[in-house]
């Protein structure tokens, strides 16, 4: 665990940046902003979004959802605070939220930010976990066990790391101690792996790109998203989105969507929620019917997160500075701007 501050560094970086652009005016990069990940704070007050420029935007959800009509300003849809990570950080790849910390996954590192200080300036990293690996290893996915003791990180080096959140030690590269728990992972190679956590070995393997009814070779074989339900797996990416039966490992339902790649899919309330390079975010029944088509601002949806308490919010973000907020899950209520 490391303690450090980098406020000064950030400021210096900004100044040189401005100086460098003195003679040429280019379009602000924020017009091409891509939001890769989002998370809600445990208190439900804040929505945090991370983008490819290494910026964290904090939106004040409570005031956005219950606007005080007298106090609405022109920039009400802008972030309340933007934290700039050091310039060489690269993407912010993933975000997760524990009771105390905002967990930020970047290149080769996982950072913990204190939720209490998230809206204040400057942002402060409370702890850091370095991922010890050779070469580049961005933390593409973060998942926290229900007891908030173990942090699962799906990384760019095709490994899943498990860390103890108490002291930041690496518990396992593949497996944990829980019994009867399965872990599922997917990646660029087009494989979906089901891990047995006790043995730390891949229990089963799916190859959607090999299935004729799923394959879309012009888009690729990569799997953008996979989710595990009680009896079902939903996955998609270059191949079409499909519902697989966990026991038989057959693609039971193929969802015929007009997308150019799936990046988001998860189970919610007997539905499959899926999005990607398409004009809509879909809510689908297991039988393959489209229940809701939710128009989105992004070219590609990279992150869709929802919560039901204290109020229902679905937040959709991707390759656009705009974040779509839905409170009913049926239509777009508000558009936030990460600019």
């Amino acid at each position: 665990m490391e303690w450090s501050t980098w406020t000064k560094e950030t400021r210096l970086h900004r100044r040189t940046n401005r100086k460098g652009n003195a003679n040429i005016n280019m379009i602000g990069k924020m017009f091409y902003n891509t939001i890769t990940c989002q998370t809600f704070s445990p208190c439900g007050k804040y929505l945090v979004a991370g983008n490819i420029y290494g910026q964290l935007a904090v939106f004040d959800l409570s005031s956005l959802l219950n606007p005080d009509k007298d106090k609405i300003t022109a920039d009400y849809d802008k972030p309340k605070r933007i934290h700039n990570l050091p310039k060489n950080t690269g993407f912010i790849c993933s975000l997760a939220s524990s009771e105390k910390f905002l967990i930020v996954g970047i290149d080769n590192e996982i950072q913990g930010w204190n939720w209490k200080e998230i809206h204040s300036k400057p942002g402060k990293v409370v702890w850091r976990i370095k991922i010890k690996t050779s070469g580049q290893c961005e933390v593409n996915s973060l998942w926290l066990s229900d007891d908030e003791e173990q942090l699962y990180a799906g990384c760019g080096d095709n490994n899943v790391y498990v860390y103890n959140l108490e002291d930041g030690t690496l518990i396992s590269k593949y497996s944990g101690h829980e019994e009867n728990q399965q872990l599922i992972s997917s990646g660029e190679d087009g494989l979906v792996l089901l891990w047995d956590m006790r043995t730390g070995k891949a229990e089963n393997k799916l190859k959607p790109y090999k299935e004729d009814k799923l394959a879309r070779p012009d888009i690729g074989k990569w799997i953008g998203s996979v989710a595990l339900g009680d009896d079902w797996i939903v996955c998609g990416g270059g191949p079409r989105l499909a519902l697989w039966h966990l026991r038989s490992l057959d693609a039971v339902t193929v969802f015929d969507l007009p997308d150019r790649g799936i990046h988001v899919s998860f189970f919610y309330d007997d539905c499959v929620v899926a999005g990607g390079t398409a004009k809509h975010l879909y809510q689908l029944s297991y039988s393959g019917d489209v229940r809701v088509e939710l128009p989105v601002s992004s070219t590609t949806v990279y992150s869709a997160i929802l919560r039901t308490s204290p109020n229902k919010v679905l937040s959709i973000a991707g390759s656009s500075p705009d974040i779509d907020l839905c409170t009913t899950f049926n239509y777009r209520d508000q558009v936030l701007r990460f600019i």
């Binding site: 460098g20 003679n23 280019m26 017009f31 091409y32 891509t34 070219t299 390759s319």
Partner: peptide
């Protein structure tokens, strides 16, 4: 750029100062 992120990424590289550190 409205339908493909790849094109959008290229536009970002060309139109913005994101990649060009030197002036």
């Amino acid at each position: 750029c409205g339908t493909s992120d790849d094109i959008r990424d290229i536009e970002r590289v060309i139109n913005t100062d994101w990649h060009s550190e030197n002036s």
